[in-house]
Structure formats: structure tokens, C-alpha cells
Write a protein that binds this DNA or RNA. Structure first.
Length: 281
DNA sequence: TCAGCTACCACTTTTGAAATGA
DNA sequence: ATCATTTCAAAAGTGGTAGCTG
């Protein structure tokens, strides 16, 4: 048993993404790879946790793009039983563990607070995985991508598009702190991304995922078969997204029903429940 | 003027080191 | 001496809100 946090103390944060290096051994045609970014290994932070591991090559192979994103928040029919995704890892599947909670939020229109210092997502993305090679090593990654090219505005009762989206911000990816770990490790128990933090600070120095406020986003989870964090040759890639995890980023909650749901479901907000801070008497 | 953002507040859970016990 | 459990203070995570800003 190894202890990833000791080996890679910087793991669990997000890293700036950059384009594939020329000459990378991509398994996919350039056209399909377009739009997908990879950890930029030039960042000092990444170099930091790479020290001590083998001198790793600097480019990761490219998975193909994901299918089109779902329709407007809160208006879509119930999602299919399986997440949409693309595989070069045959037999591997992911399921959203806290799907019922996500569906509850999604039925109202999920909002996620973003702050300068970084705010966790609630609900968090928690998935269980099957079909991995128990002996092989894998990386688990999470990123958040814009759903469309619109900015949104809360109009008292619903979210409505309100102009063009802000220019896209630098892509970052969150590397699950257990990465890399064996398939047996990942399949042993659900994989939680509850430590992911979202920020609206474009100059964020902490590696949090940078988003624009009042924009609609979709989290994606990527599973990469690779012995090392920065292995030159990926043994395969599977990318997943769950339509019910779509959300709008805000700096303050707009929909009171979302506030109620957050208070009811998030243990840290217990003080705001009726039998908590607001209790009369 | 006002929508959106920030800092701070009170409250809660989580974390980890120290103390204690077997 | 070692390991497991308990205790407790500090850190971190919540939404509310007043005030600021462009």
C-alpha cells in the first residue's frame, strides 16, 4: 500500500492545461483531439511533485471530444441510465453515486457558489467505477467545461440567457489525490471529488478550477490508464459526463429553492436549518 | 440605480496532534 | 514500546448579509 499524499503532496489541486506537444504519440487524429487540453507540465507546481519520480515525458495522448452537451438546465428529461462518454478503455463504466441528490438539485437548476478563495462543489461528484484492470494503474481527473456560449441571468423565477459568454478562461484540471492508483484501488470504493474548489479569480494561484460567474458548466471525469502522472503513452482514456451535474456558477445564490436544498443537504449548513441557528426560542 | 461581488459573521464539520489506555 | 482510542483545539466549510463597485 502506498501513500500518494506523501509521494505527491501537491496532488488534489488543479493544474493549468495546455495543448499537446508537437510529435506527441496521439492515438487520435488531430481533428478529433482539437479542443481537448492536457496538463501543462511546465508549471512549477507540477514540476514540484514530479521531482523524485522518474524523468517523465511531457505530453499526454489525446482522447476524442465528448458528444454535444445536454439542453438547457432544468428542462431536460431524466438522464439515461448510463453516463454519456467515450472509451478507449473497453468494459470500463462509471456511475454517479449520489445521483439522486444531483437529480434533485438539477430539477430546480443547480447553482454553485464560486469565490475568490475557492469554494467546494455541493453536491460533489462521487462516482463508482467498474471494469478496470485491478493490476494496472490509472489517473482520475476532473474538469469543468462551458455548456454553451451564453451568459445567464436570474429573472426572478428562472434562468435566462443574457448575452454572450465571457471569453473562455484558462483550462485547468483537478487530479484526484490518489492518482496514480491501481484499478483495484479505484474499484474498492466510490471515488469522491469533494475537494475540488471553484474560483472566479482569473489569477488564482491555488490551482482551483477557474469559472466565470453566471455561466453554465458541465463537470467531466476522465479516467486515464497510465503508470505515471505524466506518462508519455496512455494505455487508454475514458471520459464521462453526467447531464444531471450541469450547474450555473454564481457568487451568491439566486434561486431560493437552491438555497433551501443546500441548507437541507449540506452538513456544513446545518446552522441555517430551522432547528439550528434560526430556531425561535 | 442596481446587479453582482466581497468581506465578515456565526455556526458546523473535519482534521490532526496530544493525551490516555490496553 | 507499540498500537488503538479518545479528546480537544484549530482549521476549514457553510449561507446570510451589509456594504462596496462599476
Amino acid at each position: 500500500m502506498y501513500h500518494p499524499r506523501e509521494l505527491y503532496p501537491s496532488l488534489g489541486t488543479g493544474y493549468r492545461l495546455g495543448p499537446p506537444q508537437p510529435g506527441a504519440d496521439s492515438s487520435f487524429p488531430p481533428a478529433l483531439a482539437e479542443g481537448y487540453r492536457y496538463p501543462d507540465l511546465d508549471t512549477p507546481k507540477l514540476d514540484c511533485f514530479l521531482s523524485g519520480i522518474e524523468a517523465a515525458p511531457r505530453t499526454l495522448a489525446a482522447p476524442p471530444p465528448l458528444p454535444p452537451l445536454p439542453p438547457a438546465l432544468g428542462t431536460e428529461p431524466p438522464p439515461p441510465s448510463a453516463p454519456e462518454g467515450l472509451h478507449s478503455l473497453p468494459g470500463v463504466s462509471l456511475s454517479l453515486e449520489n445521483r439522486e441528490l444531483w437529480k434533485e438539485f438539477n430539477s430546480v437548476g443547480t447553482e454553485m457558489i464560486i469565490t475568490k478563495a475557492g469554494r467546494r462543489m455541493f453536491p460533489a461528484c462521487r462516482v463508482s467505477v467498474t471494469g478496470l484492470d485491478p493490476e494496472a494503474r490509472y489517473l482520475f481527473l476532473l474538469d469543468v467545461v462551458p455548456v454553451d456560449g451564453a451568459r445567464y441571468r436570474w429573472q426572478g423565477r428562472r434562468w435566462e440567457p443574457s448575452g454572450k459568454a465571457e471569453p473562455r478562461l484558462p483550462d485547468r484540471v483537478y487530479i484526484h489525490p490518489d492518482s496514480p492508483a491501481t484499478g483495484a484501488h479505484w474499484m474498492r470504493q466510490p471515488v469522491s471529488f469533494h475537494r475540488v474548489k471553484l474560483t472566479n479569480s482569473t489569477l488564482d494561484p491555488h490551482g482551483h478550477l477557474i469559472l466565470h460567474s453566471m455561466h453554465k458548466y458541465q463537470p467531466r471525469i476522465h479516467l486515464v490508464r497510465a503508470a505515471q502522472l505524466c506518462s508519455q503513452h496512455w494505455g487508454g482514456v475514458a471520459s464521462f459526463r453526467f447531464p444531471e451535474t450541469t450547474f450555473i456558477s454564481v457568487t451568491a445564490y439566486q434561486n431560493p429553492r437552491i438555497t433551501q436544498l443546500k441548507i437541507a443537504a449540506n452538513p456544513f449548513a446545518k446552522g441555517f436549518r430551522e432547528n439550528g441557528r434560526n430556531e425561535v426560542g
